[in-house]
Nucleic acid binder design. Structure first.
Lengths: 130, 130
DNA sequence: CTGGGGCTTCCAGTGGGGGGAAGGTCAAGA
DNA sequence: TCTTGACCTTCCCCCCACTGGAAGCCCCAG
């Protein structure tokens, strides 16, 4: 299967697939004409990667997850530890965003949003040394 | 004031300050020796930028916010609209992260995390065509 | 044999800086 | 006066995870 079919079946852009090969996440075969030849196992890995990326795992995490997946003697504790670390990072990002949202919502609600220049949002941003 | 003092007073790395000058957010003067000479107004803008960035505004949003801040005939509605758009983006990111977190938490809880290889996390990532 | 769609590689850019080299400048101390 | 060390400058590459586009090869239908 050529890259377009692989892209459709894995629901990943062809560019991304080439990139994943470049960084060694997949190693598709090559036809005589130099075209990539994707096996089912390649498509399988690609969908795996797509799902892991959709859960927010970094590429390097994905690399580890893929190797754990292929290692039939893995310990599920290793996978769970990776997931825990990632959950912690997700929660950190959510907390940061919620903090931004709360502050910004307060300022937003305090701004009357009319034609006049007075604006608590700008006033807060301009706080001198606070 | 040299860049180090500006960095301390604005609580921004010197590298960041140079970058902000490079992209035209600030325009500090120069001493005869080529050193940047920061006025109070420059420091003021830098702290403004630091706060706006801390609220998650992009650099381009910051540029607009700064110009609105300096435009004494601005309408607060313009600021409010920008804040609204940004709040929408923040909420979108939070929703995406919460979705990841929920999915991953379910998988995490279902994984017993022992020495055995069976792992619902990997099994989910490996779902074929689901 | 021509056209168009597929495929290849390579280069550049994204956002928001960070790291570090190479070299100029300045002030304090010996 | 000389040296040392802290500071400053520009310059270029690196990060992540792609994305866009150019230049050029391959293959099949008409």
């Amino acid at each position: 299967m050529n890259i377009k079919g692989a892209a459709e079946r894995s629901d990943l852009p062809a560019k991304t697939i080439r990139y994943y090969e470049e960084i060694g996440l997949i190693r598709p075969l090559r036809d005589g004409n130099g075209y990539r030849a994707f096996r089912d196992s390649d498509i399988h890995k690609l969908t795996f990667l797509g799902r892991a990326r959709a859960l927010g795992f970094t590429i390097e995490d994905c690399r580890v997850l893929l190797s754990l997946y292929e290692d039939k003697s893995r310990a599920s504790a290793d996978v769970k530890a990776l997931a825990k670390r990632h959950l912690g990072q997700i929660n950190g990002k959510i907390a940061a965003l919620e903090s931004m949202r709360d502050t910004l919502t307060d300022l937003y609600d305090a701004c009357n949003g009319d034609h006049r220049p007075d604006c608590p949002i700008l006033a807060n941003l301009a706080l001198w040394g606070g």
